[in-house]
Amino acid sequence: MSTPAAPHVTPVRRYLWVLGALLALLTLSALSALCRLGTFNLVINLGVSVAKTLLVMAVFMHETEARNLTRLASALGFVWLAMLIALTLLDFLTRVRVPKPW
């Protein structure tokens, strides 16, 4: 055990592929925003953001090589945030103006 194992490294090409994909997704969201797509503008924008985040987390933040405990910890922040926003919107999106019964 005199020479410790060299640290694991990701090939440069994979980082550059991810950068290319991120810039392509950025272009997609910018161009789609200029088209009148109704609700799909929002869907595409959110979808592109989630895809970009997954790319950054998987490759740049080395989540694919991380231990399960680290993955769990990294997902938790997003899970709490999803609950926060989902439950808040559940309230605001389901409010109905009820007429006075008298």
Partner: peptide, 24 residues
């Protein structure tokens, strides 16, 4: 690394309240 991710979770929620306000 685990400790850093716990800190980053607090950062996510720090910006999260602003995003929640934005959504509302």
């Amino acid at each position: 690394t685990l400790g850093m991710w716990v800190f980053l979770a607090t950062e996510i929620l720090f910006f999260g309240v602003l995003f929640a306000s934005y959504a509302v």
